[in-house]
Amino acid sequence: MRNWPLSELSITTPRLELRHPSLDDLDELADRAAEGVHDAGYMPFTVPWSQGEPAERARSVVQYHFRTWATFAPDDWSLQLAVVHEGRLVGVQGIAGKDFPVTREVESGSWLGRRFQGRGIGTEMRRAVLHLAFAGLGARHAVTTAFEDNHASLAVTKKLGYREDGIALHARDAEPVVTRRFRMRREDWTESPDIKIHNLDRCLPLFGLPASGFSEA
């Protein structure tokens, strides 16, 4: 789409492609959500979108992406990328920023279809958006949060070298539960030469950055 440069944006890693989803991609992602993304009786998300019947989960995925497209602005954006593995849509890796031209801080979040978990895909897709944040957008900090019993997410975070950055309390199923926050500074990030960003330059103004590249000023 000529008037929506993000539609051309993608990141490639040795095993994955992360791309702005097409309408067909959204249909397939909705199918993944309908199949399930976590065990019954456990909620890993602060917003419990994955509850409900399969058709409700599928519809919520499509609606959420439409909302992020409609509200994308330099001072408050959320980029949700479809993750492709061996030709199949397997999940979503998101990255978001508020007042990013000033704060240079991003926050990540993701989900992965349950039958694709345990293969190292979650680590690789997070590494991809960290590359986009630091190498592509000039971020100075990346943060992420997870419930203290979300062991899979915490394992990815620790593997990538984030540092502890505090805790918060949330209500989950009418019970208090601790979320742990982590931070990675640009100087602690290790660049991955096998990760490539495609068609970013025309997208940069949407993030509040110059089209010719980011400025560290």
Rank of each mutant, 00 (worst) to 15 (best):
A34W: 08
P101M: 06
L79V: 04
V37Q: 02
Y162V: 06
K159V: 02
R119K: 14
G97Q: 11
W4S: 09
L81E: 02
L137W: 01
R2G: 14
S60N: 14
V178C: 12
F207R: 00
A33F: 05
H170D: 10
K98F: 02
L112W: 00
E107F: 09
E191L: 02
G109C: 03
W111C: 04
P193Y: 07
Q117S: 04
H85A: 14
G52H: 00
L89N: 03
V90T: 02
T123G: 10
A73G: 01
A142C: 15
S10G: 07
G113S: 05
L130M: 15
H85I: 03
M1F: 12
T190S: 11
R114E: 13
H151I: 13
E148Y: 09
I195F: 14
G41K: 12
G41H: 13
V83S: 03
A168E: 14
N3P: 00
W77R: 01
R19F: 04
I167T: 15
I11T: 05
A142R: 00
V37N: 01
L200I: 05
P44S: 06
G138N: 10
W77M: 01
V143T: 15
Q63V: 12
A171M: 14
W77S: 04
P14L: 12
A58I: 09
V177I: 15
Q51K: 13
F45M: 13
A128E: 07
S60Y: 12
P54K: 11
P210E: 13
W111M: 03
N199H: 12
V102D: 15
F66P: 00
F100W: 08
F147T: 00
F72Q: 08
R114M: 09
F182A: 04
R140H: 14
S10N: 12
R114F: 07
T12W: 03
I121G: 02
H170W: 13
V47P: 00
G109R: 04
E105Y: 01
R67F: 08
H38D: 10
D99R: 12
L154E: 12
S60I: 12
E164Y: 14
T145D: 10
L16D: 03
W49R: 13
R2A: 08
W189C: 07
H85G: 04
P176A: 07
D39Y: 01
A174I: 02
I197S: 10
L206T: 00
T123L: 11
Y64A: 06
R32Q: 15
R181Q: 14
H38Y: 05
V84Y: 02
G120T: 06
R127C: 06
Q63D: 15
W189A: 10
V84W: 03
D24S: 15
G138K: 09
E187G: 02
E187M: 03
A211P: 00
E148L: 07
I95M: 10
E17T: 14
V106Q: 08
D27L: 06
H65M: 04
E124S: 11
R88H: 10
F100D: 07
S22K: 05
G166F: 06
R114C: 04
A152E: 07
L130G: 08
A96D: 09
G41S: 11
R172M: 13
R57D: 09
A146V: 01
L200Y: 06
A211K: 08
V129H: 04
F207Y: 03
D27S: 11
V90Y: 01
S78T: 14
H170V: 09
R32S: 00
A142N: 11
K158T: 09
W69A: 07
G91E: 01
A73P: 00
W77A: 03
I197H: 11
K159G: 08
